[in-house]
Design a binder for these strands. Structure first.
Lengths: 161, 161
DNA sequence: GGCGCAGTGTTATGAGATAACATCACAGAT
DNA sequence: ATCTGTGATGTTATCTCATAACACTGCGCC
């Protein structure tokens, strides 16, 4: 992802140090909660954090081995399921891709602004879920999870192109 | 879809007469707009309308022929793309399924309440898109389309179960 | 009647995700 | 220390979802 346009973008992926910090934080928190932050889970989270934008599952599979060896699909899908369950990652259904959570972790409803031009994706704390909840209540539905994704162009891609 | 639970639901799929009326209306409108409402497109729309709930693409493919002959995938995917472009159908990304539009047609942003128990799906006029638009504006994003889907339990499935 | 375009038919393949089952690692009980 | 259950992983195979590519057709238009 992130190669559809060729103009300049300022904000690249996070540096290695940031990724390390986030990994350590996630590891610490989950271990404290009694969860097992295994090698595969850490590796997938590291790949997501390092990318800083949505990544396709099969890209994760391809990049999984430090040495270039791909993983088997279930290895990565299981890790993704775990990370999503723990609020550390999200699936973006409209593009079948996965992204590290940037809103602190924990289980939560999220919404995304996705640039169709460069792939940049911003997680916004779901202001929307509130409204949607009201509509759902009125219709008698009991909502358990939401998928809220807006596609368009990020500031950089609006100016360029 | 729609067979996960076994308790009673009152609202079944629309009757044949309703489907016929909706088909005729869609045909008339698109023809008036200079579009070609071909046999394949009508057939797919008829299947969606008849189901009254989200249908998987390969279910449409399987049911395509009146005589039980399946269609080739591109036939159905092309029809779906056209119907979606014209606002007559929507793709539900979170479950990879398609549903006839129940809000009058035309191009529009939609939101959905989806029952994970029985598959019932309700299209609600997007109240949410407004909010999301505000957030997007603040972030500098120019939004072109949205995916808003809420999963949970419909009134009937809340009571039963 | 020849051009161009939108739509279709057909074959093949690419991309996304999971089922099923064997094995392994570890915490807690005895 | 060892047994034992549970959660995690390895591995193979398969299933579902979607599209690329190319030939052909019908039709309006000049």
């Amino acid at each position: 992802m992130g190669d559809a346009c060729h103009h300049h973008h300022t904000d690249g992926p996070p540096g290695a140090a940031e990724v390390e910090r986030a990994l350590a934080a996630a590891d610490g928190r989950l271990t404290a909660e009694g969860e097992r932050m295994t090698a595969a889970r850490l590796r997938v989270l590291a790949l997501l954090l390092g990318a800083g934008e949505p990544v396709k599952a099969y890209d994760l599979i391809a990049r999984f081995g430090e040495d270039g060896q791909p993983a088997k699909p279930p290895t990565v899908y299981r890790a993704l399921e775990f990370l999503e369950r723990k609020g550390l990652a999200h699936r973006i259904a409209s593009i079948s891709a996965y992204v590290a959570c940037t809103s602190g972790g924990r289980d939560h409803a999220a919404a995304f602004l996705i640039c169709d031009c460069c792939g940049a994706t911003q997680e916004v704390s779901s202001p929307v879920a509130g409204d949607l909840g009201l509509v759902a209540d009125a219709a008698g539905y009991a909502i358990e999870r939401t998928t809220i994704e807006a596609h368009g162009r990020c500031p950089a891609c609006r100016i360029a192109a």
